[in-house]
Design a binder for these strands. Structure first.
Lengths: 145, 145
DNA sequence: CAGCATCCATGACGATACTG
DNA sequence: CAGTATCGTCATGGATGCTG
């Protein structure tokens, strides 16, 4: 990161999937518009995705169970987020044709990989959110003069 | 993560900063409402924060330089995001009293730590976004019947 | 049970204009 | 140069009601 790896033109390949090397000349554009950070954030940047992925990391679970445990989520956002996660290949959806129907969600290996990468962020939050909160207090005091 | 570490009651301490242990009994509530994931996402979940932190990870930079290099950002969002990052202790702001004034931003050790944790996510995106894109295509085909 | 469709409020964001 | 202030737009997401 410090050497700017995530600014590199290689990201274009990830984004376009055709990897046109001729278009990788202008570094600034690559940074701003085609960085996979954008796509990544679409997935992990909303408040429910990580929560649901974390829940399913504990084991497969049904719609109603997820709704109960991830308290505060609306069924709209639950259904919507689950669909996105499924489409991204991060979780699977299994329909048991009972009456009434029963649907079970489970994390995929790809999803578990993401969860693993996320762990570093979680660890940082665990250990450093206190420092962030302190910085905020200090900042607010400095500005309150 | 797989064992549910980021669901643990310990997160309450991070959130409330008073660490009332008596309130940590109900696991479900802890998961949903006080998980630092929420606070964390406020910081890294928007599209400009990571980009700016990454830019400043390369070296200190002035307002106008950031605006030029992070192409597509409005001066409103640039100023706003920089202020948030500064308040969180992730970057510093140095004002040189020239005419006209010159302001330089730099990453802090705390910010660099976050950038390091972010690197795992970036790496995942680099290597696996292709798999995600493939999963999307497969999903869309499945649903298009 | 597991959703989808609809309506609606909030607020995020960009564009523009102005200032020390 | 480095912002602040204001406005309009648009997307996000919650609440509600309906269905196989």
């Amino acid at each position: 990161m410090q050497d700017g790896t995530f600014l590199s033109p290689a990201y274009l390949d990830v984004t376009t999937l055709d990897g046109a090397p001729g278009a990788t000349g202008r570094r600034g554009d690559v940074f701003a518009r085609n960085c996979p950070t954008r796509q990544l954030l679409d997935r992990v940047g909303d408040k429910w995705s990580i929560l649901l992925l974390g829940m399913l990391g504990e084991g497969e679970m049904r719609f109603s169970a997820l709704k109960r445990r991830v308290d505060g989520i609306s069924q709209k956002m639950l259904a919507q987020t689950l669909r996105t996660l499924e489409r991204d290949g991060l979780i699977t959806r299994h329909v048991e044709p009972t009456v009434p129907v029963s649907v079970t969600y489970a994390i995929t290996p790809l999803g578990r990989e993401l969860l693993g990468a996320l762990q570093w962020l979680i660890d940082w939050a665990e250990t450093r959110m206190g420092a962030v909160a302190q910085a905020q207090v200090a900042y607010d005091l400095r500005m309150a003069d």
